Simulated scan of single mutants.
Amino acid sequence: MAQPLEAKVLVFDADDTLWENNVVFERVIDDFLSWIDHPTLDRAEIRAMLDDIERANAVAHGYGSKVFLRSLGECLERLRERPATDVERRDIEELAAALIAHRVELMPGVADTLDALAGRYELLLLTKGEREEQQRKLDACGLLHHFGAAHIVPEKDVETYRWLAREHGFDPAAGWMIGNSPKSDIRPARAAGMNAVFIPNANTWVLEHDELDPADPGVIELATFGELLPLFRPGVSR
């Protein structure tokens, strides 16, 4: 069996790594595209327009359900070439009601894996988004007792990871970032000197996609969360 990896601190993403998240947004988008029923543009063209709007709004306003609703409304107005009516805005809010009602559902193996790792490593949680919304999910997930700290940040860029290492006093080379997003989890963590474990999620938001270097020895790709245990085996001396 391969030797366990050298590590002192394991940093975990939350949405779409510890629990499903974006799949709910995708269902709302699918309903929105059906509701629009545009006479000339097909679903792919409207989705491309919505992606552009979301990209701009993420830069200007951040992330979360409120910004998502804003993007849907702006997409509607661009398609209709007029302001949205009160009825249309209520219809969009009804389409997106599932975002508020959605329960936090953990990925398979998450609870047991964190339970095993927590006794051996310092575990940190790093998530981005609207603070109140992310805190609600953190409070509901039942996992916070595993983590030495949980941070909600507006963006996960290189400076965020450098700040995290300074804040918790660890050498970035001794830290591993575990997440599903090449853009927010893997590439900036690597640029800050950390190693990374990439666990792809088929429902990862399109704006979080990015290219990874397949030859980068500091990135390991896994198929499931539970596969972390053979990499970071608790109870093995270093």
Rank of each mutant, 00 (worst) to 15 (best):
P182V: 11
S184K: 03
R190E: 04
I186Q: 00
I178T: 07
N180W: 00
A150M: 10
V153F: 02
T204V: 15
E159C: 10
P182M: 09
I152W: 04
V206S: 11
A173F: 14
G175N: 06
V158C: 08
H151T: 07
D157N: 13
A196W: 08
H168D: 06
V153N: 00
E167G: 01
E208I: 03
A191V: 12
V206E: 14
P154M: 13
P172K: 06
S181C: 07
M177A: 06
W163T: 08
S181K: 04
N195W: 11
H168P: 08
I199D: 01
H151F: 15
A165H: 05
G169C: 13
D157F: 02
G169R: 10
M194A: 02
I152Y: 01
W163S: 13
T160G: 02
R166Q: 15
E159G: 07
H209P: 01
K183G: 02
S184M: 12
E155Y: 09
A192E: 09
A191F: 05
A189E: 04
M194W: 14
A165Q: 06
E167R: 13
D210R: 02
S184C: 12
P154Q: 11
A192L: 14
P200K: 04
E159N: 12
I199Q: 07
T160K: 11
H209Q: 15
G179Q: 07
D185E: 05
H209E: 15
P188E: 00
K183M: 10
L207D: 02
N195D: 08
E155D: 14
N203I: 05
A165W: 05
A202W: 03
H209I: 10
I178Q: 09
A202R: 11
L207P: 01
I186R: 00
K156F: 12
V206R: 15
P188D: 01
P182C: 11
V158I: 15
V158W: 03
K183H: 08
V158D: 06
A173Y: 12
T204I: 15
D185T: 04
T160W: 08
I152C: 05
E155N: 05
G175H: 05
H209G: 09
D185Y: 10
A174V: 07
N201C: 14
A196S: 12
Y161V: 08
I199N: 04
A189G: 05
G193N: 11
A202Y: 00
E159D: 15
G193C: 13
V206G: 03
R187D: 02
T204H: 12
E167L: 14
E167Y: 12
A173C: 01
P188F: 05
A165T: 11
P154T: 07
K156A: 03
A165C: 14
P172W: 09
E208P: 01
G179I: 02
L164A: 09
A150S: 15
I152R: 04
W205V: 00
N180E: 10
I178R: 08
H168M: 09
N195G: 13
T204Q: 15
A165R: 06
F170P: 06
H209F: 11
G169N: 08
V197Q: 03
E159F: 12
D210G: 11
E155S: 05
E159L: 15
S184F: 07
M177H: 01
S181D: 03
H151R: 08
Y161S: 02
R162I: 08
R166T: 13
V153A: 01
G175K: 07
T160C: 14
